[in-house]
């Protein structure tokens, strides 16, 4: 689906719905739907989802082939546990995608959302829709976040299928050495995926802000990825321990909490609070920029 189609679609909606410039009930829903259709209809986004889904497939394949060799049971994080229980492939795949591939996905999605529209000259047509810029930004944020959630879901579901096919699903041994039934284990891994998705919201806000600053989508994308990487690097410097808890990426691995014998919700909610803070600050920055910017193209 091209921009023109969607815009024609959007304009048609607008023409049909709008007698005056006041926002109309239902326009919001239509706009979200149209934006989602646009995001998920893009070929490169579909390719991106397929590529992310290939990560657990490749990882599962490698572990399956090497499971009887001397290399079995090695590897960082949860990789060593996958051969014993396919459910851990979900966690291992998410860990592999978290440092770079998921931030890259966010960069691409947010860069496209506003800077991409500006560079292809479609943003000013979009602004002609009788919806305030605030709402438009919210629609962009919701669509981007939905795409990111779909990326996490794609990784998780493929990992679950591959893990079940290659290694089977059994009762889950937690990090604490306690064994819980498979159903509980699936719930906890679903919690991991949900936490991973929610802990990407801060980066989405940062990416949207960069996207409002420029008309070069690649620039916004690169800046977003750089923020994630710089944050991860700063997180490893012991000299900066004082600011570590506030870093965007510091709490990303706290999803391990779901795999301990007693889940400490305090740890998880403090991670979510930090993401909420980043969303508040960069969301408001993006809003200020977007509603005041001169859109000429």
């Amino acid at each position: 689906m091209s921009h023109a189609d969607v815009l024609a679609d959007g304009s048609a909606d607008a023409a049909e719905l709008r007698p005056s410039s006041t926002p109309v009930r239902g326009a919001w829903g239509r706009l979200v739907r149209s934006e989602l259709r646009l995001v998920f209809g893009r070929r490169r986004n579909q390719a991106l989802l397929a590529g992310l889904a290939a990560v657990p497939l490749l990882l599962g394949l490698v572990l399956f082939v090497t499971r009887d060799s001397a290399l079995a049971g090695q590897g960082p994080g949860f990789v060593g546990r996958v051969t014993g229980n396919g459910l851990f492939l979900v966690v291992a795949a998410l860990i592999m995608c978290l440092p770079f591939l998921l931030p890259l996905t966010i960069g691409i999605a947010t860069g496209e959302a506003i800077a991409g529209e500006a560079s292809s000259g479609t943003l000013r047509y979009l602004l002609a829709v009788p919806v305030s810029r605030t709402r438009l930004l919210a629609v962009k944020a919701v669509a981007t976040m939905t795409f990111v959630a779909a990326a996490v879901l794609a990784i998780g579901l493929v990992a679950l299928a591959v893990g079940a096919a290659f290694f089977g699903l059994t009762d889950v041994t937690l990090l604490s050495g306690t064994t819980i039934p498979l159903a509980d284990g699936v719930l906890r891994v679903a919690g991991v995926a949900a936490y991973v998705t929610l802990s990407l919201t801060g980066l989405v806000a940062v990416g949207l802000f960069f996207s409002t600053l420029t008309e070069v989508p690649v620039g916004a994308m690169a800046a977003t990825v750089i923020v994630a990487i710089v944050s991860a690097v700063l997180d490893t410097l012991p000299q900066l321990a004082a600011i570590h808890p506030a870093l965007l990426t510091h709490h990303w691995l706290d999803f391990a909490e779901f795999l301990r014998v007693e889940v400490d919700w305090g740890v998880l909610s403090s991670g979510m609070a930090v993401q909420a803070a980043w969303v508040a600050i960069f969301g408001s920055l993006a809003w200020s920029r977007f509603v005041t910017a001169d859109v000429s193209s």
Binding site: V129, S132, S288
Partner: peptide, 20 residues
């Protein structure tokens, strides 16, 4: 759409106060 078409410098400065 209306925000962009009407020039209002004070308001735009006020908007930037929100993130602060």
């Amino acid at each position: 759409m209306t925000e962009a078409s009407v020039p209002r410098p004070t308001s735009s400065r006020a908007r930037w106060a929100v993130p602060a």
